[in-house]
Write a protein that binds this DNA or RNA. Structure first.
Lengths: 197, 197
DNA sequence: GTAAATACTTAAGCTACCTTAATTATTTAA
DNA sequence: TTAAATAATTAAGGTAGCTTAAGTATTTAC
């Protein structure tokens, strides 16, 4: 856990600098949680009232449609924040699932504790404001890609941005992130390989 | 302009309550700007250092790809905030265009003024933090739709959410928001009309 | 270590959506 | 008020990506 604390404080200090006292207050609200491979953080229909910082492991955030198909909204690994902003902002049950794909260790803070801490430490609210700006930029880029690029182009973009994940999650999951079937992604990969020789 | 000030203060007071002094400080940083129909707020390649609140009118935020096709990322009308978060967060030239589709009146604040105001009024930083959470929720929903719905379903969703825009922007623009060609949207509409009779 | 489960590949046929192009309707501008 | 520009409709033919299905490879669990 010590190691996790250092990681989360370093993560924050990239954007804002907290005093020792502020760090201690924030850390006092954190809870350490471990998930086994395939275990769920959150199931569709539940209320999300927590924000998680991943110390170790990898999680997927996905939506399951009426036909039972999953669509990958986001993934997160070490040093990333993950939570269901829609559910906790609007106080509605989540439509998402969050699942560990590996043994995953997180530091978690409850929504109400976070709000208390924001009162005491405005700099921390700034940190999350900036984090949200980055997330908006990222989501907007994904929408631009989905509107203007072919599946092959989106896959190449995925590789550039998230190449280190290519061997950590399955092709089925990558396909569901890109919005294509795994079969079609298999063909895309084959074509890319043959044209690179 | 008086009217615009009231609108922006009301908009903020839905989420946080400012004292008279805080309101005055914030208002002192605002600049009133008018755009003619078709005029641009922002062109691809420029740096975006401002946030705009629309008092009256309607603007489109779009990306133009290498083939010259436009893709609608966002639209905004009275009582909405609009800006290029990606460009101003990362200090990179924008890849977006923001254009008035009608005569449009805005109140504008510069990025550096906003940051000054955040120091003085943490509540205002909270306001924007919450606004960003809503935007993340909205963008995420759009990604879910683009991954899991057909064009017809996305059009029906557009109508539910933004129906009041259907007669304010062109079908070309709606199509580019949905990620289909205007011709195909025309067919979707025809089918919907014939099946509703 | 082996059986069962899951993931990946390949290919044939299909469909949602695109392209092109011609026609009509609506808006814009002088 | 009218010509020119832009938007919307319709339809024929085309393609990216889907479906189904069968075979192979890899991973999981006992």
């Amino acid at each position: 856990m010590q190691q996790g604390i250092q990681l989360i404080l370093d993560n924050i200090s990239k954007i804002v600098s907290l005093t020792k006292e502020e760090q201690d207050l924030f850390v006092s609200k954190l809870q350490y949680v471990e998930y086994k491979k395939k275990e769920f953080f959150l199931h569709e229909g539940q209320f999300s009232n927590e924000l998680n910082f991943i110390i170790e492991g990898c999680v997927l955030v996905f939506y399951t449609d009426q036909s039972g198909f999953s669509h990958l909204i986001q993934f997160a690994i070490e040093d990333w924040w993950v939570g269901d902003i829609a559910s906790s902002t609007h106080n509605i049950p989540t439509q998402l699932n969050i699942q560990a794909v590996e043994k995953t260790k997180v530091l978690r803070i409850k929504k109400e504790d976070l709000e208390t801490v924001f009162e005491a430490i405005p700099k921390l609210e700034r940190f999350f404001r900036i984090l949200l700006q980055k997330r908006v930029a990222n989501l907007q880029q994904r929408i631009i890609s989905s509107l203007s690029k072919t599946a092959t182009e989106r896959f190449l973009e995925f590789r550039e941005q998230y190449g280190y994940l290519e061997n950590r999650i399955t092709q089925i999951q990558i396909a569901s992130f890109l919005g294509v079937t795994p079969e079609f992604l298999s063909m895309i990969r084959r074509k890319l390989n043959s044209s690179n020789k």
